[in-house]
Design a protein around this nucleic acid. Structure first.
Lengths: 237, 237
DNA sequence: CCAAGAGTTTGACTTATGTCAATCTTTTTG
DNA sequence: CAAAAAGATTGACATAAGTCAAACTCTTGG
């Protein structure tokens, strides 16, 4: 089978991996930020904060995974991000002086560090390193969002799912130990809401991938088989 | 007809208006930023920069409008933004140290101010006001992108088009003089690529809106008739 | 360990959207 | 000003995706 080189290029050229971390900051900056942080536990399925609520502070995920989603008036749900350990979130509405645009809930039992809103803003005013890191990350994340809009608007479910699985593989790789092929363990409904399709259509597309041996399914877990080919092949046939 | 209040709420609650400007910065900061800027002219349909190219500097639009889009391997185009006068763009890939993820082309005859990459970075390191403004704007823009992904993933074309028209009305209001109901003058193909649908489907949806007297069409121009109702009604039947 | 419930999968059918082709309209250009 | 080109619209049909219902499978608690 001849695979258009352009497809490969365009995938490589595009940025789809998101998530902001503070562990790239200088040691002393990190310790200042986390100085007065509080450890928070969050049970599986519990909500950390809801869309429309006031942002009281920022969080860093220590253990477990969370989903970030919007709930719509018709009951539909769009999952926007999945966060895995070390990732930081909840700071954007503080910076833009808005309410939370999203809801965050635990996918499994989680532990987080909480940093108070004012504390965060204080540190930000003093730390050029933090300010620059945020400018860098926000700009990069923006590129990622740009690419995602393109994918959501222009691609069918096969490609969207393939891309979602590649993103999730990174997230779960991070959550687990670090093996190249991660165990993607996410309820089908969540996966459907992440990809932006119906549960049934999602399941059918998974079966299609399974038949083509692009993925392997064990119970509720998904493993990517043909890493490089997954996105490319999903676009063809 | 009974309109679910929740729909109205959700529209109000969500942020869809984007675009970054520097004219909210203190006068002296502005003059520093634009001190050595160069005036650039761009003919209708000409490309300012292409995706994949190195970001040499940032631009502020003085006159005319531009479209910001991604071109895909299959030839499909996704328009991500339309910018109108006073809006600033091209700084994100500089901040995140990436190549341009998008292509920018003139919708009509344009005039822009160009600020050199290094000049911009220099000013940024000195100006806390600029840094804070960028953090604010980037965070807000991110919320807007979040909402757009939700709309693209979960809503049909009627709603997507309605929303696009509301956004475009703001942009063209800005471009024209400032009348509440602007003349939205954008080729159908561009509108289709902004909404994320085929040209034919776009035209049909426009006709549907016309029949329902939600919009008025004069030649190639579109005027919004029932401002508040457009998005709400587009969701119903 | 079995029964209930939650989560997943498959089938049949409907609806939304995409595609190709033809026609009509506006704009541009010689 | 007329011809040609570009842009817009409509129709007929194909395909993708959503919806509802039923069956199956795994998990979990009494």
């Amino acid at each position: 089978m001849i695979i258009d080189e352009k497809i490969h290029n365009s995938l490589n050229r595009f940025h789809f991996y998101s998530g902001i971390r503070f562990d790239t900051l200088p040691e002393n900056e990190q310790s200042i930020i986390f100085e007065n942080s509080k450890l928070v536990s969050l049970e599986k399925k519990k909500v950390l904060f809801r869309q429309g609520s006031f942002p009281n502070g920022i969080y860093m995920l220590k253990k477990g995974m969370v989903k970030v989603y919007q709930l719509n008036y018709d009951g539909s749900v769009q999952i926007l991000f999945i966060y895995s350990p070390c990732e930081v979130f909840g700071y954007r509405p503080i910076l833009s002086n808005e309410y939370h645009p999203v809801t965050v809930a635990a996918l499994d039992s989680c532990e987080l560090l909480f940093i108070d809103r004012n504390r965060f803003l204080e540190v930000l005013q003093k730390s050029v390193a933090l300010s620059n890191q945020l400018l860098f990350s926000l700009s990069h994340e923006f590129t990622v969002m740009t690419n995602r809009i393109n994918v959501f608007a222009q691609r069918g479910i096969k490609e969207r799912l393939a891309l979602a699985l590649l993103i999730l593989n990174e997230k779960f790789k991070n959550e687990n130990n670090g093996t190249e092929i991660a165990e993607i363990k996410l309820p089908r409904t969540d996966l459907a809401n992440f990809v932006g399709t119906s549960l049934e259509n999602l399941v059918r597309t998974l079966s299609f991938f399974k038949e083509k041996r692009l993925i392997r399914v064990k119970g509720k877990s998904i493993f990517i088989e043909h890493f490089e080919n997954l996105y490319i092949l999903s676009a063809i046939d």
